[in-house]
Design a protein around this nucleic acid. Structure first.
Length: 643
DNA sequence: TTAGGGTTAG
């Protein structure tokens, strides 16, 4: 016959879910075992660090433990330091010092300094550094290494270097920490010098260099080091794939993923998120589906970050339906990121009502929204013209959830008022907001002026933008478009002339389309050969047919801004998204969906053409532009001509 | 029974 304590210990060994944990807690409470430090400590360890989304449970459980020991405090502090509110762990530490006679140990300082690093609090970090000195732990190797990282996270490379130099015998981990610190603070050269001086290097040191270079946007040196490495592990490969993807080097991300598979090593969750993120950026829907198949077959579907990236990939590839299927499949593992991504997906596709419903479902399920959730829901409201609901959410975030609005939230509100046509209200809102408006805020307002054709306000807004970001080509182009639509041709010429005088070049437009899992890109003004020639020939036929059968008349205003006068006649057929759609009609099987990704906002003329093609040819076209999705079907667009 | 350096999603 085993007693309750033995039973608890045995159950704790296999405890992997919150439900298991609750059963053990019930036994422990009933049999007074919560006063046993080993049992209560283990329960806190599991709930605070091993079982996902059980931190709140851990905090509640902690309150029931009669006199927690230092181990129990440490594990709770660790759990909180890894959460999205790391500053709360400092409060736990302060409470421990105030309410108990427990003395902090090296573990306490390692965890709490990590928390300060996570929320980038230099003041807090300095105070904890002093505390560790008072208690005699500041020279402890583990604590000191965390101090080096903490200063680097807070941007103080000099303090990080000093903390490292005071170590008489740094080991390889401390060396890796100081090299990482240099890269984190933007000192690439310093990182290279220290790497050269390292007396010993293991594989992790090389991976530090790969990650450092990739985060600094230095892709070529990372590639050089990767090629030189005699041994590579999962992290080396993942770092490269994620690095290529973050730096927009999508072809190289795909190629590296292919090489990883050929190397005999298997992709892990991180490399899968990296390649999926490349799919999302490129709009590679079919290739994304292949990766999805692999994820299911190889059992990666239970990793929440992988599921969330897959959801986001489908969404950015234009399939809100597939994104929603993934969301539903994630039933047991979904977290705040999943809810927020799904809301963002509805938002991007103009499905405001669905996003609002999802927000309420999330609240009912007990998940607490954070600042990013509110960015998504406000974005959804503005893109669906839901003014009243948007204002309601802006108040709710502050009153119900005590979230201080950030510049992104203010940006959403400007967009919300602006798109709804309340331009003066939007302008006043910008002038009254408690944060200094940045170029993005003013650009949002300029976009609203463009939608509603308010030339006077546009001129005032452009003046502010010229102070903040004078060489931004898209601002000039937008102002020129606003003048063109208002028929102010003299002003159009003046904007164009000032662009030439200041040597401001328009960002070249490109569009991509996937055919048979291969991505094809089309660029304005590229030579007429290969696929471009094929697309161009098809486009001539398409334009003629939509003119005859759809009554198409070119919108000259849209094309004036970016081409020379003598090219105007051909301009209509030159925009990259038209070439991409023509190529799609030429190559894809009838009945499939044409999915196009464009780097700039779609122009009015292309928007009209897409609608007519969807009607005359009876194709469904999903076009992702810089801001949102347009889904064309039977002559209509999901944005309802509101973008 | 808890730690420090390298890759992970909105």
């Amino acid at each position: 016959m085993i007693n309750a304590e033995q039973r608890c210990i045995s159950l704790l060994k296999d405890c992997k879910t919150l439900n298991n944990l609750k059963k053990i807690q019930a036994i422990a409470t009933k049999t007074n075992l919560l006063s046993e430090p080993f049992i209560s400590g283990k329960l806190i360890l599991l709930s605070a660090t091993s079982i996902s989304d059980a931190l709140q449970y851990a905090c509640n459980l902690f309150l029931e433990i009669p006199s927690p020991d230092i181990f129990t405090y440490n594990t709770l502090i660790r759990g909180i330091s890894e959460s999205n509110l790391p500053q709360q762990s400092l409060l736990t530490y302060i409470e421990m010092r105030r309410k108990t006679i427990l003395q902090p140990d090296s573990f306490s300082f390692a965890f709490i300094l990590k928390a300060a690093a996570n929320y980038k609090s230099l003041n807090g970090g300095i105070q904890l550094h002093c505390q560790s000195l008072v208690h005699g732990f500041d020279t402890h190797l583990f604590v000191r290494t965390t101090i080096v990282s903490m200063y680097a996270e807070c941007g103080c490379i000099n303090s990080a270097r000093k903390a490292f130099e005071e170590l008489s015998q740094p080991n390889v981990v401390a060396w890796n920490a100081i090299v990482t610190a240099c890269f984190r603070c933007g000192d690439v050269k310093g990182g290279e010098v220290l790497f050269g001086k390292m007396p010993f290097k293991n594989l992790t040191s090389w991976n530090v260099m790969l990650a450092g270079y990739m985060k600094a946007g230095e892709v070529e040196p990372a590639k050089r080091i990767f090629a030189e490495m005699s041994a590579k592990d999962e992290v080396s490969w993942s770092t490269m794939i994620v690095g290529f993807s973050h730096n927009g080097r999508l072809d190289e991300a795909f190629e590296c993923f292919r090489e990883l598979n050929l190397s005999g090593m298997r992709p892990n969750g991180v490399s899968l998120t990296g390649v999926l993120s490349a799919c999302a950026q490129a709009g590679a829907f079919e290739f994304g589906k292949v990766i999805h198949g692999y994820i299911e077959k190889a059992g990666f579907g239970t990793i929440v970050s992988v599921g969330n990236t897959l959801l986001d990939t489908y969404s950015r590839c234009g399939s809100v339906q597939m994104a929603h299927l993934v969301f539903d499949w994630m039933i047991k593992i979904k977290n705040i990121v999943s809810w927020t991504s799904m809301m963002a997906s509805f938002a991007m596709h103009g499905l405001g009502k669905e996003a609002v419903q999802l927000f309420h479902d999330m609240e009912s399920s007990g998940v607490v929204p954070d600042g990013i959730t509110f960015v998504s829901i406000l974005y959804a409201c503005s893109h669906a013209g839901m003014l009243k609901e948007g204002i309601g959410f802006f108040h709710k975030m502050q009153v119900t959830y005590a979230i201080e609005p950030s510049i992104e939230h203010y940006g959403c509100m400007v967009d919300l008022y602006g798109r709804a046509g309340l331009l003066r209200k939007a302008f006043e809102f910008v002038l009254e907001m408690p944060i200094e408006p940045n170029d993005i805020i003013w650009r949002t307002l300029l976009g609203a002026c463009s939608i509603h054709g308010d030339v006077t306000l546009a001129e005032q807004v452009k003046e502010r933008l010229s102070e903040l970001d004078p060489t931004n080509s898209s601002d000039h182009v937008l102002l020129s478009n606003i003048y063109a639509i208002a028929g102010k041709w003299r002003e159009v010429v003046s904007v164009r002339r000032s662009m030439i005088d200041q040597n401001i070049k328009k960002c070249p437009g490109w569009s991509m389309i996937e055919v048979d899992k291969v991505m094809y890109s089309f660029v304005v003004g590229a030579g007429l050969n290969g696929v471009t020639k094929e697309a161009q020939e098809k486009l001539v036929e398409i334009m003629s047919r939509i003119r005859i059968e759809g009554g198409y008349i070119p919108e000259v205003g849209s094309v004036l801004h970016d081409i020379e006068e003598e090219e105007k006649e051909n301009a209509v057929s030159l925009h990259s998204e038209k070439l991409a759609v023509a190529f799609g009609i030429s190559r894809l099987c009838p009945g499939s969906v044409i999915r196009i990704v464009k780097n700039l906002r779609v122009c009015r003329d292309c928007h009209v053409v897409m609608k007519l093609i969807s009607k005359v040819y009876n194709w469904k076209i999903v076009l992702r532009d810089r801001n949102r999705f347009h889904s064309f079907h039977l002559g209509q667009c999901s944005c309802q001509d509101f973008w």
